[in-house]
Amino acid sequence: MTRLDEAEADDLLAAYALDALPEADARRVEEHLRTCSEHRAVAAELRQTSSMLSLTVEDREPSPELRRRIVEAVKATPANSKPVDRGAPQAAVVALPRRFRSWRPRPARLAVAATVAIGLGISALIGYQVGLVTGRPVAYTFQGDASAAPGAEARLVYFKDRKEAVLAASGLPKLASGQVYEMWLIKNGVPVDKGISASATGDLGAKLSGDLSQFQQFAITIEPGEQQLPTTKPILIGNLQAGST
């Protein structure tokens, strides 16, 4: 990282205060501020003024549902549960949201073919070349929750040698505006976010990375935007210990 001289840093301080610098330049400014008290004071004033721009807006009345949504989500989320690092499934165990604790995974129904995911014909999976994989894949089939997602089905094919799985789900409940499907792998009761989809069709295809042998369950929830921990009960959940090869 090239260090900024005094003039260069001074030139960038206002944009820095407005969060209007590209990432690399912002890091260079911060590096400079660590050792330059004069610019640190200037940056603080500029930042203070810039943050006041929030107060130039008029209050607006959100829908009454927003308060209810927030209260419900808060009740389902442990306080001070700083999200786990999404890239590190081995992250510290955190307490489960109350709703999550009531999850009771149902036994996975054995699937027979490694190619079931492709068989579903979901566009996201077209072209995935199972035949090129040398390891023996493990397949799982999960059924949707009887009340939340009747008729939904998810098929997961895991390629151990790649530590990669292909998911194909169909018949999921349609999403409302702003909602997403969120996929989870669960280790010792702790859900780890494995990505989202905003599919409008109720069909879902995705590739999941990770060593599935480290996890006990797979689940899908519907969330109001991507979450670090689930805020709703799963619409589909199943065990990962009973797949077929």
Partner: peptide, 19 residues
């Protein structure tokens, strides 16, 4: 809708990170 989603996320972030 998008604004309400952003506000909900922000309040949840406060809740999760308050410590």
């Amino acid at each position: 809708s998008a604004a309400e989603d952003a506000v909900q996320e922000a309040f949840l972030a406060v809740w999760r990170n308050a410590s």
